[in-house]
Design a protein around this nucleic acid. Sequence first.
RNA 1: GCCGAAGUGGCGGAAUGGCAGACGCGGCGGAUUCAAAAUCCGCGGUCCUCACGGGCGUGUGGGUUCAACUCCCACCUUCGGCACCA
Length: 810
Amino acid sequence: MSYDHRTIETRWQRYWDEHDTFRARRREGRPKLYILDMFPYPSGAGLHVGHPEGYTATDIVARYSRMKDIDVLHPMGWDAFGLPAEQYAIQTGTHPAVTTQQNIATFKRQLKSLGFSYDWSREVDTTDPDYVRWTQWIFLQLFKKGLAFQDEVTVNWCPTLGTVLANEEVIDGKSERGNHPVERRPLRQWMLRITAYADRLESELEGLDWPRGTLVMQKEWIGRSEGAEVTFRVKEHDGSFRIFTTRPDTLFGATYCVLAPEHPLVATITTDAQRTAVDDYVAKSKNRAERDRAATKDKTGVFTGAFAENPVNGQPVPIWVADYVLMTYGTGAIMAVPGHDERDWEFAKAFGLPIVEVVKGGDVTQAAFTDCEDGELVESGMLDGLRPPEAKKRITAFLEEQGLGTKRVQYKLRDWVFSRQRYWGEPIPIYFPVSCEGDPRTSPHKIHYDQPLAVEEAELPLRLPELEDFKPGDDPAGPLARAVDWRFFRKDGRWYARETNTMPQWAGSCWYYLRFIDPRNATEAWSPAAERDWMPVDLYVGGAEHAVLHLLYSRFWHKVLFDLGFVKDAEPYARLVHQGLILGEDGEKMSKSRGNVINPDDIVQAHGADVVRLYEMFMGPLEAVKPWQSTQIQGVVRFRDRAYTVGMRRTTEAIDEATRRLVHKTIKKVGEDIERMAFNTAISALMVLVNHLQAQDPVPREAAEALALLVSPFAPHLGEELWQNLGHAATLAYHPWPAFDPALATDDTVEIGVQVGGKTRGTVRLAKDADEAAAREAAEANPDVARFLEGKTIKKFIYVPGRILNFVVG
RNA sequence: GCCGAAGUGGCGGAAUGGCAGACGCGGCGGAUUCAAAAUCCGCGGUCCUCACGGGCGUGUGGGUUCAACUCCCACCUUCGGCACCA
């Protein structure tokens, strides 16, 4: 009887649905596991094979845990705001909400066809007004705490496209699409003060069970560095500026200073003689995107004509303007120490500026000497003879004493630009007073952006207006600005204007894990009880592409909610695992243009959901990048069919010793492998069991039952079918995971290798706990071994019970 | 350039100090079949040898150890991330 995957799989999927099998329930005092997948953006293309990889992994853990009598929360939802639906709307006029719902329906059908054990009653959709309401509510909490604010941010504005472009969309001052000119222009934006949490976002990474690389990436992104801020006075001018340095110990070696082109002091200190050159340079830098600037490492810059005074030795140092100094980091100004900083060294070489050695240890005429542990301070007054770490402390203390500087911690992390000039996102729930003679919808008016007002929480959600045309348009306020009847409203006789920017796609994914714990709560975003019950997320699985932004933003929101007392943990995701990318059969990244995309629907159709699940888990370690190989699928198809054939045979209560031991070994191995998420080797162990049972007809009942239960997390439809065939009326989803007898899970005699001089020459079968004398005797009796011992003196004999025997010969 | 991960049969991979190559794909031989597919059984690192057996073998070169895919040092290659952050 062959396995008819279409009938069997749909039957069990219907059973699970009808019986609400996977509804999450929390029992007082029981252990719990919150097992979360990164929810998908429901694109028009449907599921790709990368989705079922992570989702199968978590599903295995979830199913296994339920059988271990653990309360499991395993939800799924949709990160459904985003550009593609809006782009499609611009092209076709179809409302993004329509496209989004169609795509969600497709994704849901596909996920259901794979037999994942989600609690679908908890499904959330970030575009649902009931969800948007609480995203907006969290924004208001940030706003009220002073963490959401407006600022003029220099953005890449493309007038032709009528939109703001990301840095990577700008190439050489032109838009990537269409090659239209792009201006750097300040635009009012909503910002979130993530920098206020920089220290905690870094220090609280400690103790998270996350991939090492991801922790490192987050740390580098936050980019904490310790140093000093030092004030330099401008000579013959009443201005001064502050610089940030991590090498205050090299202060005596500062031979010039550099201001970023955007630095406010540039305009006032530039001498008449240098004015034209400086103005030209500043104007040119202005229209270069930051990425562009960074692309060319050749140093450029212009002398301002002004000098500053080195605060420790009174030496005059020329002040230059150069774009290798960024206005967005530190103070936008540096002291340049060409002797001990590579960038300053290159700049000094390019412009013939003096290079002074203040730390002995290298040759500053050849290259900057940047070692900050070794070396000896010279030509540095009171610092002479010290090593850099000591000198740093000394000079910082001195600067603080003299009121010339302070110790300072600086981060690379910048505040988060949170507004988008788009339609398909959550409206920012803020409005502003309007001054107008008459009706601002038709008359000239002024919007007081400096007086933002929060929408009343009771009025949330603030819904998007209906629009005919979703194009960004020529107004940098975004498409919502055109919905004048929505934008302007009258309250208590005064006119107000709503914010027309929307939130970025990150917003919804920042807190969805919290909505899952209490998704239908109509009065709160989630209840404290639900939070106590289920948080934190115990296992979070998703792609490494979210290693920085999503995870950082989400952690930031969580910490704010923690400070406000809405959650009890400082961190949302206790354990994180990234599934590795699945490449195409050609070993290249799957993409439409390469034509190497595998559609999981096709595999489900041809071979069934269990095969997709088994294959993706059998390919290799979950975290590894690995190519798809269609020919390999045959292997798991055979396994599935054999397991079915063997499992459907009539059973016997009799069981031979070897089979019994193998069953117990397999129970042990599969359980341990699931716990360390080594699914490929767990499946391998199941293959060994099935291959062994192949020859047994009738099959021992103990073995058949174990097989059904053990295989079920991986191939749940197969598991249920076998289980039912063994006479069980109910689903095995909550049947206790079989226990193994440790005595049976190991053999009592083992075959171990015998080495002579480190080379294996033969094997002997020994009792597991045989003593050394017995082991040696057995080994010497082995002719293959004896041959190599002949005429040799045995210097040493090594015996590791159950492992190895080794004669060390002279 | 810096940071992170990884290099094992024809291929995906297993073994985290103890018999390298579990398990699977492909290949080869056999059973079944009129024949084929499917299925089942068996054999598969490489070199020398008819064989018995032996030499070599986990990116490269060194080292530690009775014993190294595994630990240490240096290097090469691939993938991912960052990249003038003072």
